[in-house]
Design a binder for these strands. Sequence first.
DNA 1: TTGATAAATCTAAATATGTCAATACGTCGA
DNA 2: TCGACGTATTGACATATTTAGATTTATCAA
Lengths: 111, 111
Amino acid sequence: MISAIHSESATESQLEALAWVFKALSDPARLKILAHLAQHPIDLCCGTEPGVCACDLEVVTGLSQPTVSHHMKILSSAQLIQAEKRGRWMYYRIDPQGLSLIKAFLPTIGG
Amino acid sequence: MISAIHSESATESQLEALAWVFKALSDPARLKILAHLAQHPIDLCCGTEPGVCACDLEVVTGLSQPTVSHHMKILSSAQLIQAEKRGRWMYYRIDPQGLSLIKAFLPTIGG
DNA sequence: TTGATAAATCTAAATATGTCAATACGTCGA
DNA sequence: TCGACGTATTGACATATTTAGATTTATCAA
């Protein structure tokens, strides 16, 4: 069949989407944020709400508020976190979609 | 115990090493190279030698020779490929170490 | 309504990255 | 030894990324 001419199993745009998820994971601050979210599904500072608020992540990373906001936007665009605003606070939690993409792809590159 | 003060399970330097592997994976050209290596353990253009030579990867990626060389250096530094020189040719193959690092870390961030 | 607070956006900076042309380096064959 | 060939390195350039200060927006409390 014709599509077999393109012998690579992943299309160009699929590779770009995957590369973007990997890029979101390529910063130590963002890895630290994700590890914190995975290990603290219940918020520490703002009560018993599910998720972690942005102010916590400033402490965890030692970065400024705008910088944390920037990182969260990147993680969100890669579907690695889900963000929800409740009142004045943003709450974050792990989004399984981004990592699922990666886990499905790893065998393609020998993993 | 004292070390428990640092409650994150991964140290700063471990996170940096992981981030570096993810960064090596964050480029579509490098993903394409890895996919090609995984799917062609036997060389196409230069006989029956195990591995893929650099000249093949110029064709696969459509990039110039120096650019491919640059990408291979990055993949190698992340332990994602093994490189071997035989005569005038460089042969590459998948190195399982880099991906193993990642696969071991994914559960830490909810994967 | 006003003031305070949490987060996003805008702006600017320093640094990093991807790319190729030119060149250098190794290796092989004649 | 010399020339050709495959790859690595260097230099240059355009673009992207990380970061924080200043400002804006949205929400709540008084």
